[in-house]
Design a protein around this nucleic acid. Structure first.
Lengths: 329, 329
DNA sequence: CGATCTTACGGGATTCGTAAACATA
DNA sequence: TATGTTTACGAATCCCGTAAGATCG
């Protein structure tokens, strides 16, 4: 009811943009038959179509005898209107088609800094090479913040650790991030190919702050192997952890993806085994809500990026190989 | 063919503005059933309508389960587009409806100065009281110029003497303008109620220039009564004729309508009889071309104006009575 | 279990193309 | 007479409303 009042004419005047386009062609050609040819329809059909518009508007649009077709004043009045509407219609739906096909859009991603630094740049670079008109908005945050951003709709997708099961959030695994020990290059551990978790029984452990996805795993690891590790040193930022390790205050356990953030500092990363722990990372999104076509396509690029990294590092993580190269510096 | 290329989407995307309006209502209410109520249609019909748009665009517009209806990104993209198109459509056709109903428009009239001065002001004043948004464009010119203006489309209608029969010009009589003699108030002729054409056998005749509608009639009149009148004095403008008569250089014969243009100059007008000549005045327009609705309505006002003048002057012309009042000054 | 969207189906309206009729230069 | 528009008519399509079905809270 409010609608019928708000738009008074649209509910009564039933004219499709295609009909207006047909009118425009007739007006431009001043001939029903030629216009019919251009419109790929029969001439009587076009004649009736125009008649229909005329009946709807209650006025003649063309003065026509068998030889001449000329716009009436009402027709001259309608012509620019029709042209404007058709142009608007066409350009709008052209834009929309580009959006729907993923050529245009804006992808907002809430992500852990490690993913933002390691996985995203390559994926975005390759994606933008194909879709230069898609913009990205990246919100790097800790796991919880990222989830909230997705839930509030501020971010379309989140790249984080697997969240607690939540009806309104869906999680799709992307990769699992192997934990390793991080120590100085001159540390005895750096000589080994891998290390076991009980190393932290004899070495000071630098823990990440509670609430981080890393801390959740390390807690679970120590619990599983029955090791009571006192968090003597605890920090929130990787840069801090890096500095602490570098200062010989202890060693830490971090997923492989985080290490490039500490690169070129003389630290190395070696897999932690017996058992090996992994941090499941993936894509979260609001359950039951569609993604933009561009984001949908971009997710494919993310998977490709992950596969490529796995292939490059041949079973280990890229950080592993980088850490291996470190001694050669 | 050029059209199909120029407007690439409009020929493939077949969406009526009403469908977009329906989409807007669903988007605003987030409910198919409530929207269906507002749109005065059944809910399944609305469901199918939305589905149709979705199929046409190749994307979902709403994420919907049995409890919630939410816009998808594509739907959010379409919403402002739909609103813009619907608004444009509605306001444009609202304007057009005002034009078609004669409430809005522009009437261009090519007219003889006498009609412009005597008939038009009253008709326009009464018309604009009812249609304040209709503009007038008046081109006052001699008969031939006015006809050309109408033929060229510069003027929509012409108010002139009856033209030579012309296929491309149609003439509708409006009034016939009685000829009379124009002389000084102190002239002996002013004492008489009327005068015969042979008065010009004994008095100098001031002729209007060849090509004027007045000259055409006076020539015909002299020819008919067999009077050879030498055009000793000839002029194009009524103001000149007025001055010549006022200077006692002669007298002239003019249709009643022209006299108000010479009013308050001490001249009087008396009917010329035996026989009485009349200048047929009317409305010319291009044959076979429609008029604007406003002009069509205005023509009715012109006829009313003429009838009113005839009633006021009770069988004579308004000029006649005004001339009669002159001696009382 | 209730509210809501979707699918199925029959009827009515609209629109198309072909063919014939019509009108003017 | 030739060109171009309108009318007539049968067929296909589209769209609506009613009724039944499915699904989630």
């Amino acid at each position: 009811m409010p609608v019928l009042e708000a738009y008074s004419f649209i509910m009564r005047i039933n004219i499709a943009p295609q009909q207006l386009a047909a009118f425009i062609v007739v007006a431009e050609t001043c001939s029903f038959s030629e216009a019919a040819g251009r419109l790929a329809m029969s001439q009587p059909a076009l004649s009736r179509l125009i008649r229909l518009i005329e009946d709807t508007l209650g006025t003649r649009l063309f003065d026509r005898d068998t030889r001449n077709v000329t716009l009436t004043p009402a027709g001259r009045e309608l012509l620019p209107i029709a042209q404007r509407i058709v142009r608007e219609f066409d350009s709008s739906f052209s834009d929309l088609a580009r959006f729907v096909s993923g050529q245009r859009g804006r992808i907002s991603i809430a992500t852990l800094p490690s993913i933002a630094a390691v996985l995203l740049p390559g994926a975005i670079a390759r994606f933008r090479a194909k879709r230069p008109d898609v913009d990205f908005h990246i919100l790097d945050a800790l796991s919880g913040t990222a989830q909230e951003a997705v839930l509030r709709g501020e971010a379309e997708i989140g790249l984080t650790a697997q969240p607690q099961p939540d009806r309104s959030l869906s999680f799709a695994p992307l990769l699992s991030d192997e934990f390793g020990v991080v120590c100085r290059r001159d540390d005895v551990l750096a000589q080994l190919g891998s290390t076991t978790w009980d190393v932290f029984a004899s070495r000071p452990f630098i823990a990440m702050a509670a609430g981080t996805s890393v801390r959740a795993i390390t807690d679970a690891a120590f619990l599983q192997i029955g090791l009571a590790v006192a968090p003597l040193l605890e920090c929130s930022f990787l840069a801090t952890a890096r500095a602490l390790v570098n200062s010989r205050l202890g060693i830490t356990a971090l997923p492989g993806l985080t290490v490039p953030l500490m690169a070129e500092t003389g630290l190395v990363w070696r897999p932690l085994v017996s058992p090996s722990f992994r941090r499941p990372l993936g894509i979260i999104r609001r359950a039951g809500s569609s993604l933009t076509p561009a984001a949908l396509e971009f997710i494919g690029y993310l998977h490709t990026e992950v596969r490529q990294r796995e292939k490059e590092t041949a079973g280990g993580s890229a950080i592993h190989s980088e850490a291996s190269e470190a001694p050669t510096e």
